[in-house]
Each structure stands twice: as structure tokens, then as C-alpha cells.
Nucleic acid binder design. Structure first.
Lengths: 216, 216
DNA sequence: GTCTATAACTAGATAGAC
DNA sequence: GTCTATCTAGTTATAGAC
């Protein structure tokens, strides 16, 4: 385990960076405070001094990672809604996925943290992060409804989540997929993947238009 | 934590059932052998007697859960290939997803275990399970290629994985989605979800036909 | 095969000196 | 703010009686 370029960053920042990397690589339960403080080159007692507990540190790491991403998503959606030109499904999907792919491109930790969240069943943490996402989801769902009024709302809600899951899964497994089929991985360039993802998603969503919702 | 209907099942079976449920609900690292043996109503030392270690028990639980499922997938795929009628993309996707959805319908533990696998970064376990899947993936990819020769192979490989990820994600989060939009969850009946999933997936995949692969 | 008892270890958290 | 030392509780695994 190598050390970080800690330079003269403050202790809390060093801890957050080390924790983010280790949570991403090893999971939350799989990472001890000892490992974090060793990588951050701070004393073992510093975590409980600057944060209150391991749980509080975990929440801080996730918030630091997710909040700027969601802010950028909302910014892009606002631009799509008010920036002239029609509000298309393509632009809504782009506002949702482009910031995520850019984040992934510069720092793979982000998507790994999303994966940890999916399967480390810490109810408190899950609810906490969930709260960050609810207003975002509502905003995007309203926009998608405007952009594709002929697709039933429950279908929009469901299939956008489905697409989100597909993206998370393929990013999480991109190394394994590369190993299985070298050179056949379409996510080697963000822009190309984004383009194909939007094509795939809108084709799937539009195939659901006109159809009746299955529940009244 | 309730006890299982252990009846007069042998000790190993009791341990496997208890471990499966707890791994699904709490994760692997989040579950101690003490919890497992208490739920199974066997002695704490029984695990190390019947299995060799916690790791060996974990592998046994996952194999027991995944192997019959993959056998059924291959059976359905063989039927689609040799049972008369053309081999369509629809039938390939159905062979891949129908057994998974049926398993989910009768025992939600299965999909939760898939989720644990995604994010508990135990390299040994991941590689072990990975080995179970490689031949399956190759078989399905060959069939998909026959069914959709006009879609580039790398796209088939990628988007089928993508669909798999979407299914895993939506099943994993089906309770949360139900909470967010009550009554708008299309996976309340397996057959309806399967039908729509195949429609969505084939629409997406067919939108990729004719296009050039992005890498030579 | 099943049990008790315990070994050997690691975790998160804290008290108190500096 | 930072350190050492230590506490308490939990973990897997095993030895050995029954």
C-alpha cells in the first residue's frame, strides 16, 4: 500500500482522501481505521478526533464524493430546460450520465463507492445517501416526462433507473470485461460511450411509448 | 432474528441456509460465524468442522445458489437453439433472464448475493465465481451473434452485460423504488417484466445494428 | 459428530500526557 | 492538535472432553 501525495494538506483532507481510496478498493467494512491512518500518515487517534466515529467519517467521504456530481447534473439539466431548443430525452439522459462518466474518467473511486453503497447493507448510511438523491430523481423524472410525454410515467421512472443500473454495473466491471474481451470494451472513450448509451436508452424508452402501463 | 424451519435437516444444510440468508441481508463481512450458527441452531464449532473455514463456507453458499440457475439458463438456451423455429434475440435474452427472474421470485436471497459479489471486494471469491460464469457467457455470446449477425460482436457483448447490470440493479433496489413511487413498479409480475425487458433490450440492441464498431 | 473452553488476533474508541 | 497506551468487545479457529 503506497502513501498518498499528502504534501502539506490538512489532516482532515488527508484522512478523507485515504479513506475514499480504501473504501473504494476494499469496501467499508473491509477497511480499518488503522489502514486509513497509516495511508494518510496521521495518528490512529486522529480519526476519532476530527470526525466523531468511523460511521461519521464514512458519511463525510460519500458526501464529499457525491455532492459536486449531483450539483453538476442539476446544472446541466437546468441548461437543457432553459437554454433554448427543445427539451429532448437525449439531453435529459446526457445531463444525468455525462457528469457521472466524467467523474469516472478522472477518479474511478467514485463509481466504486456507488457499488459499495449497493451492497454494503448499512441501513443508516443508505438512508442518508438516499436523502441526497430523492430531490434529484424527482427533478429528472419531471424533465423526462416533459421530454417524452408519450411514455407512461411509471415506465420512465423504471427504465431510467434501469439505465442507471446498467451504467453502474458496466463501469464497475469494466476491468473484468476488458480482460474477457480485450479491445472490445466500448467505454474506452467517454464521449463515444455517452453517445451510444443515449442511443441505446432512447431506443429502449421509445419502444415503450404508446404501450399501456401495466397497472392502473 | 428468527430461527429457520430447521426441522430435521442435516447440520450442513442448516448452516448453508442460515449463511445464505445472512450473507444476503448483511453482507459477507457483516456476518459472523456466531450469527450463522445461532440462526442455524448448531454449535459454533460446527462450521469449522463441516466446512474448513469461513471462506470455504462462503464459496459453498454461492455455488449452491448459482449453479442450478446457470444450468437452467443453458438448458433454455439449448432448447432455443435446437427446438425448432428461428433463434431470435428475444429467445436468447429470455434464456438469460427468465431463470434469474424466477429465482428472484421464489427467493430474493439470490439477487442479493449477486449484489454482494459486486461490491465485497474479495478477490479470491470473485475469481472463483467468475470462473463459473465464463463458459456461460461464451455460450450466450455465440448464440446472440447467430441471432443478431448485424450487430457488431463487441456491442453484443457489451450491451448484454449492460442489460444484466440493469436487471441486477433494479431487482436489488425494487423495495426502495416501490417506496419512492408506490404502485409504479413494473416488476410486480415476473412475466410482464420479462416481456418488457426483452422489448426494451432488443430495441436498444437493434438500434446498434449497422453502426460501425468504434474500434478496429 | 457435537460440545465447552479458550487461544490468538483485530476492531473501534478513549484517557491522559505532551 | 497530536501522540502513546490501553480498554472493551468482537472475530476466526482449534484443542480436547464427551
Amino acid at each position: 500500500m503506497e502513501t498518498l501525495e499528502t504534501a502539506n494538506k490538512p489532516t482532515t483532507e488527508r484522512i478523507l482522501e485515504a479513506a475514499e481510496g480504501l473504501f473504494a478498493a476494499q469496501g467499508i467494512r473491509g477497511t480499518s481505521l488503522k489502514e486509513i491512518t497509516e495511508l494518510a500518515e496521521v495518528n490512529i487517534a486522529a480519526v476519532n478526533y476530527h470526525f466523531r466515529s468511523k460511521d461519521a467519517l464514512v458519511r463525510a467521504v460519500f458526501e464529499r464524493s457525491f455532492e459536486p456530481l449531483n450539483a453538476e447534473r442539476l446544472r446541466m439539466l437546468g441548461e437543457a430546460e432553459n437554454g433554448g431548443g427543445p427539451l429532448t430525452l437525449e439531453r435529459v439522459l446526457r445531463a444525468l450520465f455525462e457528469p457521472m462518466l466524467r467523474a469516472w474518467q478522472t477518479n474511478r473511486n467514485f463509481i466504486l463507492l456507488v457499488g459499495r453503497l449497493q451492497s454494503e447493507p448499512d441501513a443508516e448510511l443508505t438512508n442518508h445517501i438516499h436523502g441526497l438523491y430523492v430531490p434529484l430523481i424527482e427533478r429528472f423524472l419531471r424533465a423526462a416526462r416533459r421530454a417524452a410525454p408519450d411514455v407512461p410515467e411509471n415506465e420512465l421512472f423504471f427504465w431510467i433507473h434501469f439505465l442507471f443500473g446498467g451504467v453502474v454495473y458496466t463501469l464497475l466491471n469494466s476491468q473484468d470485461m476488458e480482460k474477457m474481451h480485450p479491445g472490445q470494451n466500448p467505454i474506452d472513450t467517454t464521449e463515444a460511450f455517452l453517445h451510444d448509451l443515449i442511443a441505446f436508452g432512447t431506443a429502449g424508452l421509445r419502444s415503450r411509448s404508446q404501450s399501456q402501463p401495466r397497472r392502473s
